[in-house]
Amino acid sequence: MLRAMQPAVKTPPVAPRSGRHFLQIPGPTNVPDRILRAMDRPTIDHRGPEFARLTAEIFAGIGQVFGTPGPVIIFPSSGTGAWEAAIVNTLKPGDRVLMFETGHFAMLWKKLAERFGLAVDFVAGDWRHGVDPEVVESRLAEDRRSSPGASADGAIKAVMVVHNETSTGVTSRIPLIRRAIDRAQHGALLMVDVISSLASIDYRHAEWGVDVSVGCSQKGLMLPPGLGLNAISDKALAAAKQGGMPRSYWDWEDMRRNNASGFFPYTPATNLLY
């Protein structure tokens, strides 16, 4: 509509095509015709009974995709919003976190974390390897040794890693990272970006002891862009109840309270949920 209302912008002419365009980028991915047809319906009342039935079905199924019986929050956002939500619900400015330079998206998540005042311990990388579990263990063990008097957790509050680094095609091994944290007997939260791995590469939020999984709609879920997802452990929920940063749009509690009755605290991406 906007395009129809505005004067034409000069762009290079596109030759007429036959057949289907091949969209072979690593996301947003091809949306199946069935899903496109499902979305091609009038927007319904997001405060009405039909919507509540729809969300009940979605919330019953979405946990299986993450491999968790626990809560999953669905934001109308990109994956970047879900990154932000993971941070503002659980951490506060000055908190130390451990991150790894696996590629472009790890760099972007680090930049976002620093804008919230987190002190990022950033382990340099060559963009051809994933997160080294041995480095996770040694950094956390060192953190505990150098934090005398502090709790058993040390100063590092979270380990934040990208599961599948979309910029490089490298998949870090989350179970090995979990075991490394356990070997260091460190209490840091484990946060994992599953934006391009969710529903495509084996992933088990609960079994692997992940505290916050950060996902989105436009990759393995085969939806258009527009949904940001957080799967949350009990430990992350407790951290959110005790602290985090000032937040409103990204607040898990608000979402959970409303989701319990099938609704959202603000307008959801209605047609993406059909």
Binding site: F22, Q24, G27, N30, V31, H104, M222
Partner: peptide, 28 residues
């Protein structure tokens, strides 16, 4: 893109021009 109407993934940041990405994810 111009010959075969196919979009491949761009090399991002320091990989710009140096790599391309073949997506094999989603409805395939």
């Amino acid at each position: 893109l111009s010959r075969f109407d196919m979009s491949l993934g761009v090399g991002l940041a320091k990989l710009a021009g140096k790599a391309f990405r073949i997506g094999h994810v989603g409805d395939l």
